Computed example of a mutant assay.
Amino acid sequence: MIYLNQTYELLAGGFHAGNRSWNKRHTEIDNCFKLYQLTEGNVHVCSDQDDFTLEKGKMYFINGSKLSKQYCKESFSTHWIHFLPKDLMIYQGLLNLPAVVEIETNGISFIGLEQHIDMLLNSTKISSWEYVLSIMHVQALIQTVITRLTKDCDITATSTKIYRLEPAMRYMHANYKDTIHLKELACMCNVSPNYFHKIFKQTFKITPTNYIILLRMNSALQLLKDNGVTIKEIAFELGFTDNAHFCKTFKKYYGITPGEYQRNQNNILL
């Protein structure tokens, strides 16, 4: 029997209408993968080498680790999702792609997907069956995009080092809310802490510490959707020593405070 495991983690997503005030530089929170499909206007996505114009009606894969900034000159609206692969080979393969890749949209679209994204990010209000169906819809879109990327781009180049990192990656995804020391992650991979830090950053373009913070910050977005939970409770839930530390970290990554996000989340494109 072959077990088909879920291979992608949905971080955030939805529908957003914006204007020239949408102007953001790269932060650690951008070290994920993004799908945009514009319905109006256009936006600019920049790497260190190029300035890409995303156009109405087209779907784009964006390699967040290669972004330097994103901005809009006039106005735009877009469907969007941010995700991370759980499979390390896919993860590193996507990291090897250009900053922006246009996706052939024949047979795939965000149309009708908004409700499933919303259900997953606000899962306390849906049944188990609705949750499973929503996962299948969102995962089908991501999987189709990845399949088309493998056809148009070579994402097969990978390092043998990635297999050595797998135990640590699995542990971080399962325990990111707890205090995790570099030494214990290195021990899981049978390497020294310095070498583990070096090959992790080389492979995933982010340090182990910042990767854990990335997981915490994306979890914070979902927790902040529940108005019945205080920001202080969320801070301790995610392993922060105090509320002020959590708020400072959240603003560093997203450019706004947790309270501002909680009040205006439906009008924000991260």
Rank of each mutant, 00 (worst) to 15 (best):
residue 223 L to E: 07
residue 230 T to A: 02
residue 222 Q to P: 00
residue 236 F to H: 12
residue 235 A to R: 07
residue 212 I to Y: 00
residue 205 K to S: 14
residue 230 T to F: 04
residue 203 T to V: 08
residue 227 N to C: 09
residue 231 I to D: 02
residue 238 L to Y: 05
residue 224 L to K: 03
residue 230 T to N: 02
residue 226 D to N: 10
residue 207 T to S: 12
residue 218 N to T: 04
residue 223 L to Y: 11
residue 204 F to K: 08
residue 222 Q to A: 05
residue 220 A to N: 06
residue 231 I to Y: 05
residue 216 R to K: 14
residue 202 Q to P: 04
residue 211 Y to L: 05
residue 218 N to Q: 09
residue 232 K to T: 13
residue 212 I to Q: 12
residue 210 N to H: 15
residue 232 K to V: 10
residue 212 I to G: 00
residue 228 G to R: 06
residue 215 L to T: 09
residue 218 N to K: 05
residue 214 L to M: 11
residue 233 E to I: 06
residue 215 L to Y: 14
residue 218 N to S: 06
residue 239 G to E: 10
residue 204 F to C: 11
residue 238 L to D: 10
residue 222 Q to K: 12
residue 226 D to L: 00
residue 234 I to W: 03
residue 232 K to R: 13
residue 217 M to F: 07
residue 216 R to C: 02
residue 228 G to S: 05
residue 218 N to I: 04
residue 229 V to H: 01
residue 224 L to F: 06
residue 235 A to M: 03
residue 202 Q to I: 09
residue 228 G to F: 00
residue 225 K to Q: 08
residue 206 I to P: 11
residue 229 V to C: 06
residue 231 I to Q: 06
residue 223 L to F: 12
residue 205 K to H: 14
residue 221 L to Q: 12
residue 236 F to P: 03
residue 237 E to P: 05
residue 208 P to D: 04
residue 233 E to N: 12
residue 237 E to L: 11
residue 232 K to E: 15
residue 204 F to L: 15
residue 207 T to M: 00
residue 231 I to L: 06
residue 238 L to V: 09
residue 207 T to F: 01
residue 226 D to H: 06
residue 218 N to E: 11
residue 236 F to L: 07
residue 231 I to E: 07
residue 238 L to P: 09
residue 213 I to V: 13
residue 222 Q to N: 04
residue 216 R to T: 01
residue 228 G to A: 01
residue 239 G to D: 09
residue 207 T to Q: 00
residue 218 N to P: 02
residue 221 L to Y: 12
residue 207 T to R: 00
residue 239 G to N: 10
residue 226 D to V: 01
residue 211 Y to N: 05
residue 238 L to W: 06
residue 222 Q to L: 07
residue 226 D to Q: 03
residue 206 I to W: 11
residue 213 I to P: 03
residue 228 G to T: 04
residue 239 G to P: 10
residue 211 Y to Q: 04
residue 209 T to C: 04
residue 233 E to V: 08
residue 206 I to V: 14
residue 227 N to P: 02
residue 204 F to G: 11
residue 210 N to D: 15
residue 224 L to G: 02
residue 238 L to M: 10
residue 210 N to S: 14
residue 227 N to H: 15
residue 216 R to G: 02
residue 205 K to L: 15
residue 225 K to A: 09
residue 225 K to N: 13
residue 213 I to E: 13
residue 213 I to S: 12
residue 213 I to C: 10
residue 216 R to E: 01
residue 228 G to H: 05
residue 229 V to A: 03
residue 218 N to M: 08
residue 203 T to M: 14
residue 234 I to N: 02
residue 231 I to S: 02
residue 221 L to A: 12
residue 237 E to M: 13
residue 216 R to Y: 03
residue 230 T to K: 03
residue 238 L to N: 05
residue 215 L to A: 12
residue 208 P to I: 07
residue 224 L to S: 00
residue 216 R to W: 05
residue 217 M to E: 08
residue 208 P to S: 07
residue 208 P to T: 05
residue 225 K to P: 01
residue 225 K to V: 04
residue 220 A to L: 09
residue 204 F to W: 14
residue 215 L to C: 15
residue 214 L to S: 07
residue 202 Q to L: 13
residue 233 E to A: 15
residue 223 L to G: 03
residue 214 L to T: 07
residue 206 I to A: 12
residue 222 Q to I: 11
residue 219 S to Q: 14
residue 224 L to D: 00
residue 239 G to C: 11
residue 202 Q to W: 06
residue 227 N to Y: 11
residue 224 L to T: 02
residue 223 L to C: 08
residue 237 E to C: 13
residue 223 L to V: 01
residue 224 L to P: 01
residue 221 L to E: 10
